[in-house]
Every structure is written in structure tokens, then in C-alpha cells.
């Protein structure tokens, strides 16, 4: 009985998620892209009043930096002193 309920929950969850998985992922990615811009804004010459705080986040997001700038249409890193590719 318990395993059947668990299976029903799984199927229901999949029924809920499957049609919109792509749309939700894209919306999440758009939010992440905006966040990346906030974090790296100062380095690109855009004044960021929260730079003191976002600086701390840069090492955490560095792995996503290359993917982000290519997605934004920049083939190479826009930062002279920081070249990821």
C-alpha cells in the first residue's frame, strides 16, 4: 500500500512537472543571468552599490561565468584581467 502511494505520488509529481520543466528552467536561468550581471557588474565598469557584498560571491559563481558570457552573446570573456577562455 505504502509503495503504491509512493508510486502514485511520483507519477503525479511527474505529471505536474513534465510539461513545464523547460519553461521553469528557462525562467530560473533568466533570474540567474540577472544575478550574474549584479555580481560581475562592477568588474565590467557598471557601478554597483552592493559591490562590497557581491565580491564575496564571485568565487562561488566563477565556474558559471564562461557559460553565462557565451549565452549573453560574448564569445570571449568581457573582462581583460579575467580570461576564462
Amino acid at each position: 500500500m505504502k509503495s503504491r502511494l509512493e508510486r502514485a505520488r511520483e507519477l503525479l509529481g511527474e505529471f505536474y512537472a513534465a510539461p513545464y520543466r523547460g519553461a521553469v528552467a528557462r525562467a530560473r536561468r533568466d533570474e540567474d543571468d540577472l544575478f550574474m550581471l549584479f555580481v560581475f557588474a562592477e568588474m565590467m565598469g557598471v557601478p554597483n552599490p552592493a559591490a562590497y557584498y557581491t565580491l564575496e560571491l564571485q568565487p562561488l559563481l566563477i565556474e558559471r561565468f564562461h557559460e553565462w558570457h557565451t549565452r549573453m552573446g560574448l564569445e570571449h570573456s568581457p573582462l581583460d584581467h579575467f580570461r576564462c577562455c
Binding site: 505529471f15 505536474y16 510539461p19 513545464y20 519553461a23 521553469v24 525562467a27
Partner: peptide
């Protein structure tokens, strides 16, 4: 979509 369209469709 997660706020309205997805649950409404569901």
C-alpha cells in the same frame, strides 16, 4: 509559469 499556468494546467 510556475505561479499560475503550470498549476492551472495541472
Amino acid at each position: 509559469v510556475w505561479l499560475l499556468l503550470q498549476p492551472r494546467d495541472y
